[in-house]
Design a protein around this nucleic acid. Sequence first.
DNA 1: GGCATTTGTTGGAGCATACAACATATAATC
DNA 2: GATTATATGTTGTATGCTCCAACAAATGCC
Lengths: 389, 389
Amino acid sequence: MDAALGARESNLGRVLQILHRDGPQSRATLTERTGLNRSTTASLVGELAELGLVDEGAPEPTNRVGRPSPMASVSPRVVALAANTEVDAITVAAVRLDQSVALRERIPVDGPLSPEAAADVIGDRVRTWRAEALAGHRIAGIGVAVPGLVRVADGLVRQAPHLRWRDAPLRDLVAGRTGLPAHVDNDASLGAVAEHLYGAARGIDHVVYLDGASGIGGGLIVHGMPVGGAAGYAGEFGQNRPGIGDPADRRCPGGVLEDEVNRDRVLTMLGLAGIDEPELAAAIAASGDPAVPAELARQSRILAAALANAVNVLNPSTVVLGGYLATLCALAPGDLVTQVQAQCMPASGEGLQIRPAQLGVDRQLVGAAEVAFRDLLRLPLQAIAAQSR
Amino acid sequence: MDAALGARESNLGRVLQILHRDGPQSRATLTERTGLNRSTTASLVGELAELGLVDEGAPEPTNRVGRPSPMASVSPRVVALAANTEVDAITVAAVRLDQSVALRERIPVDGPLSPEAAADVIGDRVRTWRAEALAGHRIAGIGVAVPGLVRVADGLVRQAPHLRWRDAPLRDLVAGRTGLPAHVDNDASLGAVAEHLYGAARGIDHVVYLDGASGIGGGLIVHGMPVGGAAGYAGEFGQNRPGIGDPADRRCPGGVLEDEVNRDRVLTMLGLAGIDEPELAAAIAASGDPAVPAELARQSRILAAALANAVNVLNPSTVVLGGYLATLCALAPGDLVTQVQAQCMPASGEGLQIRPAQLGVDRQLVGAAEVAFRDLLRLPLQAIAAQSR
DNA sequence: GGCATTTGTTGGAGCATACAACATATAATC
DNA sequence: GATTATATGTTGTATGCTCCAACAAATGCC
């Protein structure tokens, strides 16, 4: 907003963000990336080091002429907390500014917990960590991933069917239990953020992300920014109704995408339950039943129809598939990209890439930590001042 | 990018943009809106006036205590040119910074022109205007609206079926003929820009815009910014295949939205052709054939299905319908909002508004002018310097 | 007509970065 | 192994832009 006032703080944030996203690098590199002057960069890095956000280190051997430039890296003593609320467990983690997971604990729970109980579980874990493992660390805040619709502005969980939550004020509950600034968002939206910054869609400005678990969640990146929409509910591809080319492909009249493209259907077919993705992939490969690849092909046709709609509307350069959808894409007969391109506008589908997600189980946690880091990365001084009050 | 260097230029742009978008206002208002200091605002407005971009005028009577603040308004001698290429005509216009249309000429053409011939038509008109009506005016550039897929980065028209263009380098053709910086974009995307800034979606950050003419074009506004996607093809709702609830509603097996929701079907039913929207609306109202409202109801059900998908994915607060789709929405039995809400996630559809477009025939021209103004509004000094070279 | 209020106007202070000159550390060269 | 070219750190100063404070001006209110 105000261009000159706060210019320094904004530049501090820029430097910190570059180190956060792209890892340790020399001051010379930072100078080039920011376009600022050498002396300014030195001053900025120095101030960040004084604030305890950045560590300055010895130059790395570079085998090039010229005076070596000292390295800067984010301090390992700065973390964001992250929580992922699932039906059978709540995972809490501490994520460093370099995305490494300092602490992680999966806390199994019996059946769906109430929002209050879930906040208690998170709060207890955080209290212990702050007294012990995280003593002496700066904690930027806490981000919570929820499998449901979240009104991002105030962290109200509007609807999380699997958790049986409705209109749960989770942000305030978690903030109250932890005493930390809290942020809540949809798990798939956070996965999209993580894959965009550090995973399969790194550096790509227009991304459609779909994550298949019990349902199908999704997230969008447009102009390099996560898209929440008016209230924060954007990305719910699972509830879309794509046109299905061959009526015989429909299993669920009036059903939505996640009814048709559904992991449980394959599990049932295989007579299995309670297995993870690698196990599912192995079971599919081991199965001799021809109905299995046929079902995968059917599901991938419907997925392609839904993706073609998304490609027409959003013209992404990359689609990232996570969880079950990555398995489906890898194992279904035929090429999903080709199927999508056959149904969308030729130009829109040009050069389209469909990639599996890269970040594994920590995806939601890294995404949640990212939103918890946001204020610190934008305006470091203000974030620190706000915390010491 | 660089926060301090160029701060002034960026602030010049901000002031100019506020006057451009929100009309004449006092310096005091500008001070409040920008958050800058009184003295800074005075200096900025003064410099813009010296540049010939802004006029300073006498204070307006305000009936309030205190020294009256002089008004600032955009200069009427600054224009952007705009062109809309249709099958049967090319419309060229000069649009002022206050969106008023200084000059407009609709040039009928016989059948589809080649891209070169179209650029010639535009170039001839522009040459005459520059010598006469626009003498002494500053011309920021020219924006061209095309009914087709446009690669925005270089203004290559990839595909414009109605014009029978494929891979036409229209930006370079128009820039060559006019000697002006040229921008080309899809007509519906430009309509979305115009409705977002000055029409039915004014001030709304998340908008889905659909325009029904010969086909269905569309545009998106996300986070208050127009969305082009990776190459600029975003918004092509017309080529989507929505799930159609009742199979009996399908008229066109394997067809896309614009095959099913189609103005020509209604025209045929009415035995009419070559009429405009008001005439169509009147004809529908006058028709006693019960098949007509039934067809409108069918089309609106399918439109609702497509919109529900978009609402799930993008969570807009407002959907704007232009052209035939506005007519359809107004005249089809039943409430379109209700139909959409019935098919999307309840939370996503909360508070959804569906509004007719407001800007009428100048919509595309205003949108095209807007992109032509963009550089001038962002960095006025650079834009002016670039022009005088 | 005096007073409160709001805004314009002016000159100077402050902040942040750019710049230039010099210092330093490395690789390449002879 | 000294010399040179190159790249970067370091330092003090200059520049650009805004903010600030004090004063002036124009209006409504009493």
